[in-house]
Amino acid sequence: MTVGERIKQRRKELGLSADELAEKLNKNRATVYRYESSDIERIPAEVLKPLSEILQVSPEYLMGWSEEEEKNGLDRLVRDIEKDKNIKIEDVLQCSDTIPILNYTENGKMIFNEHLCLSDLHGDFCFKAADNSMSNSQIYAGAIVFIKKTDTIKNKDIVMISLNGKIFIRKYYYYTENQKLILYADNPDFEPMIFIGDEINNIKIIGKAIGCFNNL
């Protein structure tokens, strides 16, 4: 599939007309048609980035450098969580009016397959709590937890972490004197998660919980 064919296919999948795409790109319709027909084979970098954002795919996919259709970096986040890699939240779409929700599918895979229009919370994305481990903080199974990317985590913050390809919501406590990190569930039915020294490197703190909604 050529670059032009990818552009045209993705535009139609999103229900965009050539005129609508042209307007979003600040180009004319003729230029869009030239992209789609491959009359313009070399798309400038200053066009490629906004074009991929409008079409909700990665530039790599659009140019044919990758066969994986990674929409807004969210698929990449899920893949990195599953493989327990160094997760780059900066690759995740920064949301304003629509916030993506991370869910588990029936076969245990993770996918961003819902969106919540609550931009006033300024979350980067949401996570649907899988259990009642944080029920004393009013985070129940099925609650929508708003996660904000931040490098500033302090004791008693409720954080989202990745460990062995799974994600958890826990209360953060770090003890500098003995290099011990304890992640508490505030439901006594769940054991605390304790990491000492180099064991701390086994987890990845994804972000801080800034709010939640129950029974949506």
Rank of each mutant, 00 (worst) to 15 (best):
I167T: 15
L102V: 03
I144S: 05
N202F: 04
K154R: 13
T105M: 10
K154S: 13
E199V: 05
K171Q: 15
C212R: 01
I7A: 13
R11G: 10
M1D: 05
G4Q: 10
A130Y: 10
E53W: 04
K149M: 06
I206H: 05
I153T: 10
I205S: 08
K88T: 02
G207E: 10
S66C: 10
F146V: 14
K83N: 14
I7T: 09
E70Q: 05
S38C: 06
D91I: 04
E36Q: 10
F146M: 13
N178L: 03
K208G: 05
S17P: 02
I203Q: 06
K49R: 12
G207A: 11
S137D: 04
E82P: 00
V3D: 05
A130E: 14
D91C: 04
N26Y: 00
K24V: 00
E13S: 11
T105I: 01
V32C: 02
C212L: 06
A130W: 09
D131L: 07
L74A: 08
L93G: 01
I99R: 09
S66A: 14
S119T: 07
S133P: 09
E46Q: 13
I206V: 14
N136M: 12
E60A: 14
V159E: 07
I81D: 00
P50F: 09
S133M: 05
F146Q: 05
S58A: 09
N136I: 02
L62H: 06
E36A: 03
K88N: 13
E114F: 02
I87V: 13
K24F: 01
S137L: 01
W65M: 15
L93Y: 08
V57R: 08
E199P: 07
D75K: 14
N215K: 11
T31V: 09
E23Q: 12
E69N: 15
N72E: 11
L121P: 05
K109I: 02
Y61M: 03
M134I: 01
G73A: 06
E13P: 07
A209T: 12
E90G: 00
Y175D: 14
G207N: 11
C95M: 05
E114C: 02
H115G: 08
M193L: 14
A143E: 06
I205C: 07
P192D: 01
C126Q: 06
N103A: 00
N72F: 04
K171V: 01
F112I: 04
A143C: 12
D80E: 12
